[in-house]
Amino acid sequence: MPGITHYLTVSALLFFLGLAGFISRKNMFMIFLSVELMLNGINLSFVAFSRFFQALDGHVFAFFVIAIAAAEAGISLAMIILLYKNRQTIDVDRFNIMKG
């Protein structure tokens, strides 16, 4: 019978996979997908905690995370399209005009 420890371990694994993708990939789409992966890792721990403490608040948080992920998806995809139109590339290392 899997306990909360196991669920949280899976959650942490997914989160760290997302983190590794976020810092090691150059493709903008990949970075975006890594972030989605991290969000889902956290969502799993919310649901697990909710089940463990027998309180539904974690479900509500997970629900909010999904809503925010949707908003984020919309905005970042629009930005990727715009950036690609302007620069014909989706390599994040090519975008460094914010260099101080």
Binding site: F22, I23, S24, V92, F95, N96, K99, G100
Partner: peptide
């Protein structure tokens, strides 16, 4: 000194976050 950290690269910022 601090502006050397501002590389403009998102991945560098990711590392700082980490």
């Amino acid at each position: 000194m601090l502006r050397q950290l501002q590389t403009g690269s998102i991945r560098a910022y990711g590392h700082y976050l980490l």
